[in-house]
């Protein structure tokens, strides 16, 4: 980077550039915005970043990100502790919680099996899920991984690991999203929608 740019500015641009979805131009824009913004804006951001690492941890039960351990969902006696939704990322928990339709608990894998990127089963929280099911409390495991090649591979692997452990295993239904057009649907989605059709 040019020597005309002071080192602290360069360092922050480089730090922003490492974030997913942030390119060098966006990183520069964010940095110069913070330079011009009131001091408290930058300090609040710095405090939030420090807090993020200092005050968060993984829930020892579901491996979601939490401040308290166990997390509020796992600690909630009103929730059905016998039904577990297995998701790839903490953001998937938020998406399912937004529906208000699920009253069970979660298990966060922190990724999906992606051999080409060197992510295998041991890099995910699959072993922890197996131990959780081994305790015999869980009656149903809902595999809610993304419906793509990597999510499907993860689902198949989990299914294989948990077979014979006594818990019912289900997978989120796959088909047409609300607001879509059948005309534009791909053959895989349409086939699965037909296979999963229901009575009206």
């Amino acid at each position: 980077m040019s020597k005309a740019i002071p080192e602290p500015v360069t360092k922050l641009i480089e730090s922003f550039s490492r974030l997913p979805g942030v390119g060098p131009k966006t990183a520069s824009r964010l940095t110069y915005y913070l330079l011009r913004a009131p001091e408290e804006t930058s300090l609040a951001l710095a405090d939030a970043l420090r807090d993020l690492k200092a005050n968060t941890r993984y829930c020892a039960v579901c491996y979601n990100i939490t401040v308290e351990d166990p997390c509020p969902i796992c600690a909630d006696a009103q929730r059905d502790q016998r039904t577990v939704a297995v998701v790839e990322e903490p953001l998937d928990v938020l998406a399912i919680e937004r529906t208000g339709a699920f009253k069970g608990v979660y298990h966060v894998l922190h990724g999906a099996i992606s051999p080409m990127n060197g992510i295998g089963p041991d890099d995910l929280r699959i072993r922890e899920l197996t131990k959780r099911v081994d305790k015999g409390i869980i009656a149903e495991v809902i595999i809610a991984t993304n419906p793509g090649l990597e999510g499907d591979a993860t689902a198949m692997y989990i299914q294989r690991e948990l077979t014979g452990k006594g818990a019912r295993m289900t997978r989120l239904a796959r088909g047409l999203p609300v607001g879509s057009d059948i005309e534009y649907a791909d053959s895989v989605t349409l086939t699965r929608a037909l296979m999963g059709r229901g009575d009206v």
């Binding site: 051999p115 080409m116 090649l149 499907d152 591979a153 198949m156 692997y157 294989r160 791909d186 053959s187 895989v188 086939t191």
Partner: peptide, 22 residues
């Protein structure tokens, strides 16, 4: 983009998917 060859079994069989990924 329009999918013209879905290759379903690569998604339904872990071993086939692993070979294809390789």
């Amino acid at each position: 983009a329009e999918m013209t060859l879905p290759l379903d079994r690569l998604r339904e069989d872990l071993v086939r998917g692993a070979y294809a990924g390789y």
